[in-house]
């Protein structure tokens, strides 16, 4: 499908913010003083993300009905949980500003912020994971990958603010390993989803090969049906994957090592955070852009106007 910018922003930034809240609450629990700036950043990210999601609304005035569907709609729930999370985060920030250093009460708020951050992240992931038609997303992998991405990014972003923290660094490396595992499985899952589009059950015709006939009449309605988009060329997909691995894993690992050697943690941690965030955005872009929807069975990429795309077969 098409990757909508507002959704890139909300999902990545909300995840980062939630991950930060988790990291910060760990610090709080461990009795470390937390900087209001870090909470400020977390809040800013959440606000930008939330704000971006508003721009995804095309019929603004109808936004007031957003919560009507909370009983069934993960999107409605996402609005509620993200909203709640932002509120609690703001309160936490207020506490940290009012009482810098470890203060009574902050622990409670920080804990709630982390829990809500995780919860909101989970709800957001569920928006995507709960759609059977989006074949590539309909899996717990969507949830765990999205959540580990957020947590990993959040940890990485927090680190420059709290200076050296071996335990947090180690924790983030563990999350990174988890992410790597999940992401690998997810990559496979996407491949299977792409190849598993079921032409036979989509048409009632059993004999292969299946082919969509006549490009002149089957110009895919990419413009009005955003659940599909031209199939991503394999090269682009692999380049994107390589970039993700580079920014999320290879470079951060290298930087971590470098930080260890150079003993200049703060700057390097900043670069490392930027690297992971960059990688997260590319990853999320690929998540949307490369997702295979069940309706692809009826929309092949055709026509010389779209050079380099897969043929009419699927």
């Amino acid at each position: 499908m098409k990757a909508p910018a507002p959704l890139l922003l909300i999902t990545v930034l909300q995840g980062l913010s939630g991950g930060m809240a988790v990291a910060l609450s760990i610090e709080v629990i461990r009795g470390k003083p937390v900087s209001p700036i870090a909470y400020g950043v977390a809040l800013a990210l959440a606000l930008i993300g939330g704000g971006a999601s508003f721009t995804h609304m095309h019929h603004f005035s109808a936004g007031r009905y957003m919560l009507r569907g909370w009983r069934t709609s993960w999107l409605s729930r996402e609005a509620i949980t993200t909203g709640l999370y932002i509120a609690v985060l703001a309160a936490t920030l207020w506490w940290t500003v009012r009482a810098p250093g470890v203060a009574v009460g902050i622990g409670w708020w920080a804990g709630w912020a982390a829990a809500l951050g995780l919860f909101a992240m989970w709800v957001t992931a569920m928006v995507y994971a709960s759609i059977p038609a989006m074949r590539s997303w309909h899996s717990p992998l969507t949830v765990v990958t999205m959540m580990t991405t957020g947590i990993l990014g959040g940890f990485m972003v927090v680190l420059p603010f709290i200076g050296e923290s071996a335990s947090l660094t180690i924790a983030s490396l563990v999350v990174m390993a988890l992410w790597l595992g999940f992401r690998g499985l997810q990559f496979r899952f996407f491949v299977d989803a792409r190849q598993g589009v079921n032409a036979a059950t989509a048409t009632g015709l059993s004999r292969a090969p299946h082919r969509l006939q006549d490009s002149g009449t089957t110009k895919p309605p990419y413009r009005s049906q955003t659940q599909i988009a031209p199939d991503l060329p394999a090269l682009t997909r692999h380049l994107a994957m390589a970039a993700i691995l580079w920014w999320v894993v290879v470079l951060p690992l290298g930087l971590t090592l470098l930080a260890h050697v150079l003993k200049a943690p703060i700057t390097i941690a900043g670069i490392r955070a930027a690297s992971v965030v960059t990688g997260s955005f590319i990853d999320r872009w690929l998540f949307f852009r490369d997702a295979t929807h069940s309706s692809r069975a009826w929309f092949a990429d055709l026509g010389p106007s779209k050079p380099g795309l897969a043929g009419a077969k699927f």
């Binding site: 499908m1 995804h56 609304m57 095309h58 019929h59 603004f60 109808a62 936004g63 009905y65 957003m66 709609s73 999107l75 928006v127 759609i131 059977p132 038609a133 989006m134 049906q225 955003t226 659940q227 599909i228 929807h293 069940s294 309706s295 009826w298 929309f299």
Partner: peptide
């Protein structure tokens, strides 16, 4: 609101 989530949820395009 035009969020298009229903479009993604519909299996049939």
């Amino acid at each position: 609101i035009g969020c298009q989530l229903c479009m993604w949820a519909c299996p049939y395009g």
